[in-house]
């Protein structure tokens, strides 16, 4: 029968071993050779776009790479799906955008800010998502 000492060894040993494997896998998968995000193409404009994405909590409604609020559309491939002009118009709109009765906050962004957001979406849209990009893109029924 298992003793308490053996149970403790199982806990401590298992934890240490799995944690070390986890760290090893993290280092491996984040190494430059394994990059799937085209990090070299991440422009200053896209970085400013990410900042706007965060400071306006866009993730509170939308999802990106499948992460977010499930209340508004997935934006991973939004540039491909909607085009730059459409996205900028929504972001710069002085009144709440209201597709299918569901309202979006009117962020009233400047042209430069809207362009930064588009650059951010473009960078996201080119990431290799291990096949998820084929599920969420194209989302619209007329592009299946």
């Amino acid at each position: 029968m298992l003793s308490k000492k053996q149970a403790r060894a199982f806990f401590l040993g298992g934890t240490v071993v799995t944690f070390l494997i986890f760290i090893g896998l993290t280092v491996y998968s984040l190494s430059a050779a394994q990059d799937q995000s085209n990090i070299e193409n991440l422009s200053e404009s896209a970085i400013r776009g990410k900042y706007l994405w965060e400071t306006n909590n866009c993730m509170g409604c939308h999802t990106i790479m499948g992460e977010g609020g499930y209340y508004a559309p997935e934006l991973t491939k939004v540039v491909e799906r909607r085009g730059e002009g459409y996205i900028k118009a929504i972001l710069m709109s002085p009144v709440p955008w209201q597709p299918n009765q569901r309202k979006m906050v009117a962020y009233k962004m400047s042209k430069e800010e809207a362009e930064d957001m588009v650059e951010f979406f473009k960078w996201i849209g080119n990431i290799d998502l291990n096949g998820f990009e084929t599920v969420v893109s194209p989302l619209a029924k007329d592009k299946k």
Partner: peptide, 19 residues
């Protein structure tokens, strides 16, 4: 811990990291 630490991987399937 045995399952949960490496189980973190299920959040990494489709966010742009290695297969």
């Amino acid at each position: 811990f045995l399952s949960g630490i490496l189980g973190t991987g299920h959040h990494y399937y489709y966010i742009g990291v290695n297969k």
